[in-house]
Design a protein around this nucleic acid. Sequence first.
DNA 1: CCGATACGCATTTTT
DNA 2: TGCGTATCGG
Length: 764
Amino acid sequence: MSDYLNELNEGQRAAVLYNNGPSLVIAGAGSGKTRVLTYKIAWLLENGFRPWNILALTFTNKAAREMKERIALQVGEDLARRLWMGTFHSIFLRILHAEASRLGFSSQFTIYDAADSKSLLRSIIKEMGLDEKVYKPGVVQGRISNAKNHLVDPAGYAANREDHEGDCAMKMPAIRDIYHRYWNRCRQADAMDFDDLLIYTYILFRDHSEVLARYQEQFKYILVDEYQDTNFAQHSIVLQLSQSQRNVCVVGDDAQSIYSFRGADIDNILYFTKVYPETKVFKLEQNYRSTQTIVSAANSLIEKNQWQIRKEVFSEKEKGDPIGVFHAYSDVEEGDIVANKISELKRRDHYAWADFAILYRTNAQSRIFEEAMRKRGIPYHIYGGTSFYQRKEVKDVIAYFRLSINPNDEEAFKRIINYPARGIGGTTLGKMAKAANEHGTSLWAVLCEPLSYGLELNRGTTGKLQSFKELIAGFQENILQKNAYEAGMEIIQASGIAQDITQDNSPENLSRKENIDELLNGMSDFCSQRLEEGDDRIRLNDFLAEVSLLTDQDSDQDSDSDKATLMTVHSAKGLEFKNVFVVGMEEGLFPSEMSGNSPRALEEERRLFYVAITRAEEHCYLSYAKTRFRYGKMEFCRPSRFLQDIDTRFLQLPQDILTHHKIDEAAQNFRSFVRPAQLSPASTQRSLRRINQTPQNTPPASGQEASASGNKLHAGQLIEHERFGIGEVLRTEGEGENAKATIRFRNAGEKQLLLRFARFKIIV
DNA sequence: CCGATACGCATTTTT
DNA sequence: TGCGTATCGG
């Protein structure tokens, strides 16, 4: 028996060793879930299962890659490589490539990304003469995506009264027709969108029992990671595949289900035991990541949810410090406080910058923290800009690749017909699109024989179309003889892209060139890596298949450098940091106002907060601001209701709450609240609640002491500035209109303010 | 066909 | 407020 079993705790070991039918592993945050999965696979490999008999599904390429690496350490490269391990989408793509003909697709079908699919929908909406203001492509896309995630095809959608009534309620009765057209146009283009990879896999198995039987036979053991994030389609396919052998192990944590807006259905995990009544349930409750205080605080929070699988997560690490709560006067001050705290902690406890993360609910919040960090020279790194493969120049190049592999790819066609500019404009394209639609064929077919589709073009245009056609036709013939890198090189040169981006040395062009070079480098790496592994699938179509399911999260760019991390709570899932700051803890922001009064949506927000807190290993801080700029206006904010969900025994309320008390009295705008210093937990809870009852739209220090010219300031006074917070007056100079004061703010440093403009009130 | 200006609109986003 | 798209003028 392998020694690694000794590295597991009792619960983990039981989960690894059980393989007599379905099992559900409820893995609390930080409980060593990945460890269980990897050891379980290692164990299976050592006990008679062949690697190709094991199917392991994840949600991200990164998760799959990391798990593969860890398994390789246990059982060796050779075995690990032969596992069927990957994301739902990539594994199903592999299956669909092999079985495409049964579904009426070619084996080289294109994958439409979200932008392609939106653009196609936009064309369809226009063609149907519908108002784009009413039929917003994004909303329509959401409806269709949702239908597909629930395995509803266009016929099913049209037949479903509920769906249609929903559309009508949104004044979009034609969605079912759009869906129908969209479906056919994708088939016409030999293209599948991300959701199609799931629904077509389901259809394949549903309608071709011999195919299903073959895969059921092959996959003798199925494992699924992050099961709480599966949607109905994914859940259904797992059931299809596991039906006969019933060796399926799903792992997840219902408390971390935060992707319902993308179709994830928490019920899949909550009711898994209803689908397979003989399911053995394992709970991993020991947290190896965080201090006891952090774990207890998180427990006390998630307890408030009603839809969940109860569990007792505990930690045996040290007790640790309470969770610090900060409040700021403005969003800017919040940034200052957090940045200061980071500097202070680093100095005090000798942390690396990379030990810090700032987590926010929305990307829009990042800017303020960036500025605060930059001001202090703290190196940081932001997750979640436009990813590499979404950059225009990269998409353009890839569109050439796509069209060369699949000439029916309409979106690729539209993208490059006039890039680089070759004088084929909207008018011509419009004529072609009209002809293609009327004849139910592709733009490419029209391009090849413009005359037989009755296109009226002048001679110049005909010539331009002809040469574009020849360009692409040339690629189609050539590129499959070459490897991906050579093919890519040729296309970039021959298409005129290379010339277009080297025309001048403008900074944008330089960066575009860099990106294209990076793409080429990636292609070269792709080829050499596959060759090394003895895999000769290194042609352009192979590259495309891989790259279309890749996202930026996968490229671990400058992870080696020591930088603090700024990201949304969503993107922090699965990560951990020594010190975590969860910022913007305000009503309307976190929880988001979009969740309204829907209890289910609110519970998801609470789970999101749970995810945020449980990222922390040693210290966790929460902060909120009283005012915040949103949509160009200053808004008043109340602290998040979630702050009250955490047992105050685990909180360290604002240290300067005394001063705040004074301020609020002085301003007579806020009700005073009990001093927390000498309070029992219960009454502190009450005091926190009082904060929340602060009238929502109370103006701040509405002018009476504000910056009127008669206002005399003198050194030693304490003031509260609208944006910089509390500060002490160091000195004043000048008279009347030119009167200035130098003020040392607690969190914003020293500032010189022209009193005529400064917005503040005097505290003492 | 490209640039400038206007308008409208705004969570979260593993594939 | 600030960006991305829509439309118009050169």
